[in-house]
Amino acid sequence: MRETPSTIELRIRRQDGPDTPPYWETFVLPHAPDHNVVSVLMALREHPLTHDGRRVDPVCWDHNCMEEVCGSCAMLINGVPRPACSALIDQLEQPIVLEPLPKFPVVRDLLVDRSAIDAGLRKVHAWIEIDGAWDTHEPPPRIAPQQWAADYLYSRCMSCGCCMAACPQFGAGADFVGPAPLAQVRLMNAHPTGRHDKTERLHAIMAEGGLSDCGNAQNCVRVCPKAIPLTTAIGELGRQTTIQALKDLFGSS
């Protein structure tokens, strides 16, 4: 175990707006046990003084549940994309370097615009077609517990964007929808009625920016805070699109 330091030193990449150049600032705060990156940023916003005593604007960032389930607070912490709420200070190398989640446009400081994830989910048809949100007076479709266990892994995706940030194929100027929306296609295609629209979803991901743009670097699965088997989804979708292409080519019965 490292010796507990008496201070917390943060180096933060700041940016005043989407079109202004980034700059770095260093902050030093007193150490206290049980701090995580969000709680330190909270302490900092109360007294936003740089290490040389300059009063600056508080650092802007996103947070909500702080239980690693809403996905808001993902950022680059010591070079790795991860949720800030579960990044414990005492487990991080100092100075702690905070940068906005890469690949997404910066709004301000550590705040980024992740609407690309939402757009991706729309593109790939990541929903079940239901007749309407009313009671149909039927028992719900049965799903084997083994299938549930596999599906559940994917339904925990909180759109934090870590996988996309680490993906060498995703980013401004590229079409790739990224791993998170693809994994949802895997999930929806497995649902007993979601299966009905499997062909549409597969055709969606066979287009530009779809599955073929994955380069199999597999960083996504390494950085996913929820350990979602994204690359398994990608492999399974590879199989599904192969079969789909054969069906399209030779006709399906």
């Binding site: 048809h125 055709h203 969606a204 991901i205 066979m206 920016g209 779809g210 699109t241 292409a245």
Partner: peptide, 13 residues
């Protein structure tokens, strides 16, 4: 609202 649709007719794939 679905901007992606393609199959074997799609050059990219």
């Amino acid at each position: 609202g679905r901007t992606m649709t393609a199959s074997i007719g799609n050059r990219h794939f």
